[in-house]
Design a protein around this nucleic acid. Sequence first.
DNA 1: TCTATTATTGAATGAACGTTCTATAATTCT
DNA 2: AGAATTATAGAACGTTCATTCAATAATAGA
Lengths: 195, 195
Amino acid sequence: MARPIQFERDNVLEKAMQAFWAHGYCATSIADLVEATQLKPGSLYAAFKSKEGLFLAALDYYGEQGATRIGQALAAADSPLAGIRGYFQQLARDSADAQAMRSCFLVNTALELAGHNEIVREHINRHFDTVEGHFLRALQAAQASGELAANKDPRALAVFLMNSIWGLRVLGVTAPDPQRSQAVLQQILTLLDEC
Amino acid sequence: MARPIQFERDNVLEKAMQAFWAHGYCATSIADLVEATQLKPGSLYAAFKSKEGLFLAALDYYGEQGATRIGQALAAADSPLAGIRGYFQQLARDSADAQAMRSCFLVNTALELAGHNEIVREHINRHFDTVEGHFLRALQAAQASGELAANKDPRALAVFLMNSIWGLRVLGVTAPDPQRSQAVLQQILTLLDEC
DNA sequence: TCTATTATTGAATGAACGTTCTATAATTCT
DNA sequence: AGAATTATAGAACGTTCATTCAATAATAGA
């Protein structure tokens, strides 16, 4: 009974996410988003209500994709600990890439907005909790199978791994350098070994 | 031969720093800075050239203060490792404070601007390097005195400690919680012990 | 005391901001 | 085919932005 929507929502969210990720919430103007998504202001506001609405949608799009990817990578690994080691090896490589110089969209947003905006904080925490949950289950499985020492605390290790991700993201933006990333990686992995 | 400057530079920088720290570079307007510093736009521009100039001055003011404070805390401790442990205990307490919900000004800035602005990146790295230098010297001293195991790598540990600071700052903004902060702290301190 | 110099003031500037609105295009149901 | 409905386009809105400027106030040397 009416004209159907022309654009694909995921495509628009992907483009908007890239723009927000690259420049942050405040520094990304509606004009930037119009250019990135190829939608006119009217269409953007009809679909997402406001700049903040579009931002939250893009944030969730990023968060869900990321968490899913991590979950799949862990599930596909030869063993729980091998999955975690593999993930951090890749992360260390990413954070050493001087071309990228780009943190995680969630971490950027956490520091730009989470301190003041409770809604944003909730969205971010939800995604972080999902990832932490993946790590926790992997660590518990590793302990059950004897791959992780019995005297380790999976919960504490899971929080620590999240902490390490956040740190490596900052390192990747300020001083991307393979040697430094590898040094950090070694310390992190040491904590997963017997000691 | 001319009218002398009325304001104290450090006082203005302190106020400007608080404003930038609380809201970020982009979200802090000149009007905000005028109110915070009690200087009119003309005076701000005469003294600091531009918004960016004032920001960099405030960033350095923060960085130098912070690095000095850490250096003094480490020097005043009973032993090198005791100094490091004490610093991280305090940091873990800070990041568990739900009232504050505020990261480190340098970390905030790193994620907001360092990816695009090379000058900002250089300023930030200079301050981070100073702090890392303090940690490195403490770790080397600890190793020399036998307090730190001989098989440890002070350089790698120093980078890892910086990484842990950054992580705890993110934790403090998104989900301040004593239990989680303590869990992370325990893992970090474990790496300083024999194992 | 007068002159030169510089700090301070706050209004003025044009550009860019997020958002809204009206006209138009496209579609479905009757 | 016509009527009803909704997406799209892009100009227009008032506001706020960073910055500049002309007028004024305050000081130091002559």
